[in-house]
């Protein structure tokens, strides 16, 4: 396979701190991968390694067959750092034009990219007048210019409102559709809104999960939450029959493994008119993320176990 990123057993030690241990991850052309992890998990460190700013203390990384930081590798990669403050005296257009020229992109791409990130109206204003979200979009514009083969985005959606975030994922999907790879970092699955092909989770510098969201869901095998609303006066009876936890005078909640879902449902439906309504909630993205980051289940689930 000609992967864009090939990382093999990568380790990174800063004097006393071990930031990454034995991380192996591939990213294929046209693939969108989300890198998740708690603060200090090693996300930014992995980006800096891929950019060639620092050299791994163990293992190897190659960018489309090239050494990270080498000229051919830098021609492929585009980067958006965690926090970037552009010169306040320049306009948005001047800034995007600057990075377009550095990457050797044609001049007419500047206008197109500014339109894509919805900054055309503000393009000729100084960055000093931009809002936080506008500055974030300007950073994205700078990364999108030059049709990168690999887009590295460090927490790109922090500071974006839900609509801008939605729009942001449309833009990265565009890049992927044109054959570019996207590796973006985020703090949690819920922020991600299941928009990427694959999810990789770092915990204390170790890769603890790496796969499509559906596969992670399966692997985590977290129980489904079923809430049964009993008809009047039947709640005790229902509770006695199906067990679980009483929520209030009318509802019973139970957690059931995915494998037992159908059996449980047929048991509930056999209760006939004693049941008024049934709600089913699959495990939330946050619960799956917690499972892999090993932060333990949410408090109310813990009390159940």
């Amino acid at each position: 396979m000609n992967e864009i990123i090939t990382a093999r057993n990568v380790g990174m030690k800063f004097k006393a701190v071990t930031a990454l241990t034995d991380v192996s991850i591939d990213v294929a052309p046209g693939e969108q991968v989300a890198l998740l992890g708690h603060n200090g998990a090693g996300k930014t460190t992995l980006f800096r390694l891929i950019l060639g700013f620092i050299k791994p203390t163990a293992g190897t990384i190659s960018i489309d067959g090239h050494t990270p930081g080498s000229n051919p590798a830098r021609r492929i990669v585009s980067y958006l750092p965690e926090q970037v403050m552009f010169p306040k005296m320049l306009t948005g257009r001047e800034i995007v034009r600057f990075y377009a020229k550095l990457k050797g992109a044609p001049a007419d791409e500047v206008q197109a990219v500014l339109r894509k990130v919805d900054l055309l109206d503000a393009a000729d204003r100084r960055v000093a007048t931009y809002s936080k979200g506008m500055r974030q979009r300007l950073g994205l514009a700078q990364a999108l210019v030059g049709r990168p083969g690999l887009l590295l985005l460090d927490e790109p959606t922090s500071g974006l409102d839900p609509i801008s975030r939605q729009h942001f994922y449309e833009l990265t999907a565009d890049v992927a559709r044109q054959g570019g790879s996207v590796l973006l970092s985020s703090h949690g699955l819920s922020e991600l809104e299941a928009k990427t092909d694959r999810v990789a989770i770092l915990r204390n510098g170790e890769l603890v999960a790496n796969g499509p969201l559906a596969a992670l869901q399966q692997e985590a095998d977290l129980p489904i939450r079923i809430r049964v609303r009993a008809s009047a006066d039947a709640v005790d009876e229902v509770f006695a029959l199906i067990g679980g936890k009483r929520l209030n005078c009318a509802s019973v909640e139970l957690l059931c493994p995915r494998s037992a879902k159908m059996a449980t449902l047929s048991k509930i439906s056999s209760l006939g008119p004693r049941v008024e309504d049934v709600d089913m909630t699959p495990p939330t993205l946050d619960e799956i993320y917690r499972h892999f980051s090993n932060l333990g289940p949410e408090p109310d689930m813990r009390s159940e176990k």
Binding site: F53, R74, V77, Y79, P81, V84, M85, Y99, L102, K103
Partner: peptide
């Protein structure tokens, strides 16, 4: 401010 990272990530 993070802008040097951007410049150094480009082929210069």
């Amino acid at each position: 401010r993070g802008t040097l990272q951007l410049v150094l990530a480009s082929p210069v």
